[in-house]
Amino acid sequence: MSDINGALPTPLLELRNVTKIYGAGDAQMQALAGINLSIYPGEFVAVMGPSGSGKSTCMNILGCLDTPTTGHYLFQGIDVGSLSRNQRALLRRNYLGFVFQGFNLLNRTSALENVELPLIYRGTTTAVRHQLARQALQAVGLSDRENHTPGELSGGQQQRVAIARAIVTGPSLLLADEPTGNLDSARSVEIMELLTSFNRDKGITVVMVTHEPEMAAYAKRIVHFKDGLIDTDHQQGGH
């Protein structure tokens, strides 16, 4: 990583003294107490920490789903906090991919149509849309499951469809919130290998929240949260 740091490139995203406070008055709860974090293109970052340490809040802010109470979140140099709801949605549409713990696929909808969804909002033409969606499903090894609905797929397969949906637009940043939380260890390894390969081969920056050290071991950098602050932040040799 020294080559990247040595050249001092622009960070893909940067948190500057970010705080997040939920509620008001006595019910106030400080989820983030002043976070400074820079993530550079091509990184694979695992975010760890106990429940309530602020890692999910941090992910929501990174995913432009939420905005900081104070401080700044810069995505490719743009201050996300100053953007409107619609502008943040456009940012998500064009640069971000999400993978959730609970998969969050549309029910009764075929794998192909689920993967096509972000492309429809992008206004991609039908032919290109089908082609890209098929390629994405192929990349996660589900070419033969195009017409299966989530109900007809196993948990691991559903998460792979979700990953295909996240990468189909070719995002700069892939955010994964406990992607293996609902899966057994064999399926978890498959998912981690997929994420690793997209990071390595396509250069997609990956930020992943996880509880499990075995999954965090796939990342190049591990950030530990504790009480709304970053506790430790270290690079590792990689897998």
Partner: peptide, 16 residues
């Protein structure tokens, strides 16, 4: 069910 569906759509970048 539809609220979750709307959540998914918004998260992946649909405008309101």
């Amino acid at each position: 069910e539809r609220t979750r569906e709307i959540g998914i759509r918004l998260a992946i970048g649909a405008l309101e």
